[in-house]
């Protein structure tokens, strides 16, 4: 789904990085909420959640990096100037690659911002 492949252009790879962001966001919030509802201060439920969010963040960033690389490749490694608005197959592919790359950058920043509270806040505010 992440890869702009072959000859047929498809919009699916475009939503890959934002989808990773959405899944990471939901999983982080749900995990933290459940951990804080269950923790008793004697256990490590919240610590596990913090570490888990850290691991999910690394995985999400890896997935976004993977999608970005392919998007970069489809775009042509920056050899061509945007806006790629011509009515040609090449320009359509370059446009999709470029747009995916920009969305990947936004998604990567968002994933990091979503994960930052877990890095800074040491305990649940029960």
């Amino acid at each position: 789904m992440f890869i702009h492949g072959g000859r047929n252009e498809t919009l699916w790879p475009l939503i890959g990085p934002p989808a990773v962001w959405a899944i990471h966001f939901t999983a982080s919030y749900v995990w933290a909420a459940i951990a804080c509802a269950k923790t008793t201060h004697e256990d490590a439920i919240y610590l596990t959640a913090r570490i888990g969010i850290g691991v999910m963040t690394v995985l999400a960033l890896a997935a976004i990096a993977y999608a970005s690389y392919h998007a970069w490749r489809v775009w042509g490694f920056g050899r061509y100037e945007p806006p790629h608005a011509d009515d040609t197959e090449e320009d359509r592919r370059r446009f999709l690659g470029y747009a995916t790359l920009l969305l990947a950058a936004l998604s990567a920043v968002s994933v990091i911002f979503v994960a930052l509270p877990a890095a800074f806040i040491p305990e649940c505010t029960w």
């Binding site: 950058a105 911002f113 930052l116 800074f120 505010t125």
Partner: peptide, 28 residues
């Protein structure tokens, strides 16, 4: 439009989060 605002937002977010344990000192 992108890099500098992102860095500024990241710095402000990190600063605010870093203050939180002091603002809500409910630690054990």
């Amino acid at each position: 439009g992108a890099v500098v605002p992102t860095l500024i937002l990241a710095a402000l977010l990190a600063y605010a989060l870093w203050l939180m344990p002091d603002l809500r000192p409910w630690t054990r």
